[in-house]
Design a protein around this nucleic acid. Sequence first.
RNA 1: CGGGACAUGGCGCAGCCUGGUAGCGCACCUGCUUUGGGAGCAGGGGGUCGCAGGUUCAAAUCCUGCUGUCCCGACCA
Length: 446
Amino acid sequence: MRLTRYFLPVLKENPAEAHIVSHRLMLRAGLVQQQTAGIYAWLPLGFRVLKKIEAIVRDEQERAGSIEVLMPTIQSADLWKRSGRYQEYGKEMLRIQDRHERDLLYGPTNEEMITSIFSSAARSYRDLPRNLFHIQWKFRDEVRPRFGVMRGREFLMKDGYSFDVDVESARRSYRRMFVSYLRTFERMGLRAIPMAAQAGPIGGDLSHEFSILAETGESQIYCHRDLMEMSMPGNDIDYDSDLEPVVEQWTKPYARADDEHDPAVFEAEVAPNDRLEARGIEVGHVFFFGSKYSEPLEATVSTPDGHSVPLQSGSYGIGVSRLVGAIIEAYHDDAGIIWPESVAPFQVGLANLGPDKPECVECCESLYTQLNNAGIETLFDDTAENPGVKLSRMELIGLPWQLRIGPRSLKKGVGEIQARRTGENTEVPLDNLVERIRALLGESSP
RNA sequence: CGGGACAUGGCGCAGCCUGGUAGCGCACCUGCUUUGGGAGCAGGGGGUCGCAGGUUCAAAUCCUGCUGUCCCGACCA
């Protein structure tokens, strides 16, 4: 993409309303634009990041055996009246009426709808287990939206739902999602720690919040330091195998957010040097809720012995739009964002530092073509602006690799590759540039 | 939902207390010069001060109401 044809409205100064680093950088780097409190328009660069995150989430969901669907944003109130949540859910639910004065709502979540959809077709234990997910915009009329997309009212969420014939089988579904969440966040360069959360209807251990550590986190978390070093399930993980050892490993060390925190247990279980207290951002939540919705909605299947039992379900959420902010909280410096490669809007930024020099233009045009042909996502700064403007803007938007071409380097027959993360600058002969970039991509993770 | 602030060109702000019809920096436009860390000179365009009402000869400035936004706390992916 040529910058002269792109839409990248960067801000030189910090917008007054943004108080945390990710919000500031998202506005400054032209990722989003606020439309009203807690509601954002995604500009081209931000939208690309959102899509990258979405793709990783989708990929890991499918790998774990979950199947994608798409449910509407607007729901009829009927289902919610049957489950009782139409009354229970507070003012956070946006209630609307259509022209026939029928009660509708903008979905804050989809347990009722998915239960209805699934149970309308699933009759038998043979149809189980299944896990369906969708990635869709939600609306929750938060009392106090803040921190940009980290607590918006409208937000993009992956919500998945598992259906099983009994609790033991549901546990297996839960573990699959648990493991897939560890992998999902890791692929974005995040270490998300599963925290024991408020127990579900059957009690026990089937609810976890996945949080990443960040100064601007909204909750206080307490955990064992080991969780920061523990190795993640690899690419070869078999979701049909017994995942209990993995879950066991990750849930054994103490890890709780402030609402579940018990200082006495913390101090008894964790040695002083191993205690980690920090702020956390919740990026995912897995939860088993049994027959909470299947019973009122009469979603049942027949068992092998011919009885009829309500579906056993869990729900699994990932805050996709929130992750954009969370990743920036984890990866930035004074100059701007530092995108992990896996979610970067472009892999490479190509900057022509001598836009008035024909040899620079020619060289950049050639490189741009080569990079495109190599399938490398490149943002080409072909503007006539000063080098300083280009370099600082490139740092602000945080592309992992910057390719700099100017009269100075050209004289030596080289181009410069600067790593955004380390600031390391390498001179590479012009002929080898594209090859080198290709080698660098994916070599260092994240 | 409790508490507290703010609202002035695209952005950041001053002016308001002590009413007299709007100013600065950045951005933008034109020209020339510049080009390896957010350039220089010259010229130029753009706001009626969130909205409504009131006081006054006169309101960005004082008063009332409304709306919007932000911050702190309690709740949430």
